Simulated assay, not measured.
Amino acid sequence: MSARNPLGKGLESLLGDISNDQSKTPTPGVMELPIGSIVPNPDQPRQDFNEESIASLAESLKQQGVMQPLIVRADDNGSYQLISGERRWRAAQLAGLLTVPVLEREATASEMLVLGLVENLQREDLSPYDAAVAMQKLIEDHGLSQGDIAQALGKSPGSVSNALRLLRLDKRVLELLRKGQLEEATARTLLSLELSAQFSVAQKVIKKGLSVRQTEALVKRHGRAKTVTRKDADVVRLQDELADSLGAEVTISQRAKRGGGYLRIQYRNLAQLQTIIDRIKA
């Protein structure tokens, strides 16, 4: 595969012009293969499959059969490797189907890997984590640029860059993102924190069920606490606890000589002010 054209023959020629709907229009070149002769792509970017969704699709396949052909490549062992359609393949097995319709395409092992990654990114609802890992693999293992990926997926280069930035997060935060415990927009907010602080803040976000806006405020408070000139650790802790209790930005400032200081509570509107007052009175 040349650096000039990393996708080789391209998605259109290898995958064919097949839409994602379950069209009943016959597709030229389709053949039926025993389902046991087909093996999955070992480089499938999706790490998790929704079992309930596959079970629902299996019920549909029992009634209608597989309308959209799987895309496969013949291997040297007499079997066929999936390029596209693992979800349908899994559902067909669950439905007890003996054969499935396929379209065979010629592709080298390297082209197949790239196609499997790009096709899944383009057509499947991957988790943000799986999508970012797949994009990174295309760049590191196959020499694609962010522009190549953006063009193949029909996305802007900026969206590809933003997706890849997620991989800078703490590995434990990435695991929360992969499991769906943390939303992509929320995880992206944590990128401005030091790596060592990201996981603890993420845990607080999940525990309190914070929105993206609330997470932004928490990250801002945390960052400000880090930059204040050597505040006493107990004061910083009290400041954070009070901010969490009141649901508002709180600043505690101490006078160096007298030991006193002032407490500043910031509110955005009268409704939030009333909420703060009610919480103080409670």
Results as ranks from 00 to 15, higher is better:
residue 145 S to G: 10
residue 163 A to G: 14
residue 212 V to L: 11
residue 65 G to E: 06
residue 106 E to S: 12
residue 67 M to N: 14
residue 204 K to H: 00
residue 210 L to I: 07
residue 99 T to L: 04
residue 72 V to M: 02
residue 55 A to L: 02
residue 5 N to E: 11
residue 49 F to G: 08
residue 66 V to T: 06
residue 178 R to T: 03
residue 145 S to F: 08
residue 134 A to E: 01
residue 269 N to H: 13
residue 40 P to I: 05
residue 236 V to N: 08
residue 140 E to P: 01
residue 149 I to L: 09
residue 265 I to C: 04
residue 41 N to Y: 03
residue 231 K to E: 05
residue 193 L to N: 02
residue 208 K to R: 15
residue 88 R to S: 00
residue 69 P to Y: 01
residue 143 G to L: 07
residue 144 L to R: 04
residue 189 T to R: 13
residue 185 A to T: 13
residue 166 L to D: 02
residue 125 D to R: 14
residue 59 E to C: 07
residue 242 L to K: 04
residue 11 L to N: 01
residue 57 L to T: 00
residue 58 A to E: 03
residue 213 R to V: 11
residue 66 V to H: 09
residue 35 I to K: 01
residue 259 G to S: 08
residue 216 E to Y: 04
residue 273 L to R: 13
residue 200 S to L: 06
residue 218 L to I: 05
residue 87 R to P: 01
residue 84 S to K: 09
residue 249 E to M: 08
residue 221 R to C: 03
residue 17 D to R: 15
residue 30 V to T: 15
residue 72 V to Q: 00
residue 86 E to C: 02
residue 3 A to C: 03
residue 94 L to C: 00
residue 173 V to F: 03
residue 162 N to T: 10
residue 152 A to K: 06
residue 47 Q to W: 10
residue 157 P to T: 02
residue 206 I to R: 13
residue 25 T to K: 14
residue 168 R to Y: 04
residue 53 S to V: 12
residue 127 S to C: 09
residue 122 Q to P: 00
residue 30 V to S: 07
residue 7 L to R: 09
residue 249 E to H: 11
residue 60 S to A: 08
residue 88 R to V: 05
residue 282 A to T: 11
residue 128 P to A: 06
residue 85 G to T: 07
residue 42 P to N: 06
residue 36 G to M: 05
residue 223 G to H: 08
residue 154 G to C: 05
residue 64 Q to A: 06
residue 227 T to I: 07
residue 79 S to A: 05
residue 235 V to F: 05
residue 167 L to A: 01
residue 148 D to R: 07
residue 275 T to A: 14
residue 157 P to S: 10
residue 113 L to C: 09
residue 90 R to W: 02
residue 205 V to W: 04
residue 209 G to M: 05
residue 142 H to G: 02
residue 245 S to M: 13
residue 87 R to N: 09
residue 237 R to H: 10
residue 92 A to P: 00
residue 214 Q to H: 06
residue 55 A to K: 15
residue 205 V to H: 01
residue 116 G to Y: 01
